[in-house]
């Protein structure tokens, strides 16, 4: 009698012990068990939002659970980021960020969350490229023309906010070539483009996808990356043009809060890869002119850290310059 009782108790203990050890792997196998909330820290209809929406449109077919996009704009993407960082790290809340500006803005100023310490990157799903753009009737045919003239007189240029990818790319170029120009920040890429079209400024740094539809009135002088934009592939890179530059891009990255189980991250990454092969996804991204990429969790982490390390010395100099202003 006693023996049976003991073995019964043993069984209970074992079960309890097993349950407390197993859950993560068991749950990971079942993940996702409910709809996934994707925090987009920008407004509906913007670039990052479009990536999130295309992904969410095919999510159900792959995950058997929907991805619900929630826009939480504000604070250069940090209001949404804080919300995502505070969410439960069970993989049911993810964040889709424009990682370039996210990382740069965190390096430049004290922000409520740290892009590297408070999050784990899951996958890069696309990338935005920045470049120098002038009006079609501008005297500058090449980047070299522009730099030569900028050394002689103070040019005025537009961008979408100090500290963002475009501004930093421009600052890097100024540092490398020893000139300085007057910057005027505008709200959003559309307004920057408009300032250029209206002849308010001499040149602008904007995402090259913004030039689509305006090819007759604008000219892209060069893109600040080693490789061309996979969609807007007619624009030459600074590397091809033989101009000294620093690489500045904004990878659209899926993040989860820190402490999320590795198995969940793996499942999410594999699912994202599968979503990108779906017909509907391809059709949507092609129509919208969104450049699609895929990097697995390890590649993504390495890529983002490499970018951060490349940018660190430039950010330090910009910090010093802005402190003087």
């Amino acid at each position: 009698m006693k023996k049976i009782k003991f073995s019964k108790r043993l069984a209970t203990i074992t079960t309890v012990a097993l349950m407390s050890v197993l859950p993560s792997s068991v749950f990971a196998a079942e993940y996702p068990e409910k709809p996934i909330t994707a925090i987009v820290p920008f407004g509906a209809g913007g670039g990052t939002d479009s990536y999130a929406r295309t992904l969410s449109s095919v999510a159900y077919d792959v995950l058997k659970q929907p991805i619900v996009v929630v826009n939480r704009p504000g604070g250069s993407g940090y209001v949404g980021a804080k919300f995502a960082a505070d969410a439960r790290n069970d993989g049911h809340t993810i964040m889709i960020q424009s990682a370039g500006s996210f990382i740069l803005s965190g390096m430049l100023q004290k922000r409520p969350v740290d892009p590297f310490k408070d999050f784990i990157p899951v996958s890069v799903i696309g990338q935005l490229h920045t470049g120098i753009v002038v009006k079609k009737d501008s005297p500058y045919q090449t980047v070299q023309d522009l730099i030569a003239d900028a050394k002689k007189k103070k040019l005025i240029w537009a961008h979408a906010g100090r500290g963002g990818v475009h501004y930093m790319a421009a600052s890097a170029l100024e540092q490398l070539h020893g000139f300085s120009a007057k910057d005027v920040p505008y709200k959003g890429g559309g307004n920057v483009r408009n300032a250029l079209l209206g002849g308010q400024v001499d040149f602008a740094w904007i995402g090259v996808q913004q030039v689509a539809g305006f090819e007759d009135s604008l000219r892209v002088l060069g893109v600040a990356n080693t490789e061309r934009d996979p969609v807007q592939n007619s624009y030459k890179t600074f590397e091809e043009l033989g101009v000294d530059y620093s690489r500045f891009v904004s990878p659209i990255t899926v993040y989860v809060p820190k402490g999320t189980d590795a198995k969940i991250i793996e499942k999410l990454a594999v699912s994202i890869k599968e979503m990108q092969t779906q017909k509907a996804f391809k059709k949507l991204t092609k129509g919208a002119g969104l450049a699609v990429m895929y990097k697995d969790p390890a590649e993504t982490k390495l890529y983002l850290e490499t970018l951060r390390d490349e940018w660190a010395p430039i950010v330090e100099k910009v910090k010093a310059k802005l402190a003087k202003k």
Partner: peptide, 11 residues
């Protein structure tokens, strides 16, 4: 802005 987003997604 939202109309623009819809146009964007539909190419």
């Amino acid at each position: 802005a939202m109309l623009m987003g819809v146009m964007l997604i539909h190419g």
